[in-house]
């Protein structure tokens, strides 16, 4: 079951940028691309815990600010030779508002 929560306005995130949402399981990074797509992934890089929301956003990818691992925002998978992935979360935009699916983080909380 999806559980959509209204997080913020799309304009609260700069284009090619990100902001975080604090949850009980750590920060989720919400990204806005140059062409106004929105993605949500775990904010923490699996390599050395760099905050992905502070990375440079290019196309539908983000580069970790600490050691330049590049993650595909659509899948959470790393690109290139680095091996790893981060969790992705459901997110969509309706009438300029960003809605985040918090069901996954809730179920993980129970587990």
């Amino acid at each position: 079951m999806s559980n959509w929560i209204d997080i913020a306005s799309l304009d609260d995130i700069p284009r090619r940028g990100a902001r975080v949402v604090k949850t009980h399981l750590g920060c989720v990074a919400i990204f806005r691309t140059h062409d106004n797509q929105v993605f949500a992934i775990d904010d923490t890089c699996p390599h050395k815990k760099g905050p992905l929301s502070e990375g440079i956003v290019h196309g539908t990818a983000v580069t970790c600010p600490l050691h330049n691992w590049v993650f595909d925002l659509k899948t959470g998978m790393t690109q290139g030779n680095d091996k790893g992935s981060v969790a992705t979360f459901g997110v969509r935009v309706e009438d300029g508002r960003i809605l985040l699916d918090v069901s996954r983080s809730a179920s993980r909380l129970v587990a």
Partner: peptide, 8 residues
């Protein structure tokens, strides 16, 4: 500077 939202 502040988080977009704080669900905690």
């Amino acid at each position: 500077w502040s988080p977009l939202a704080d669900l905690t």
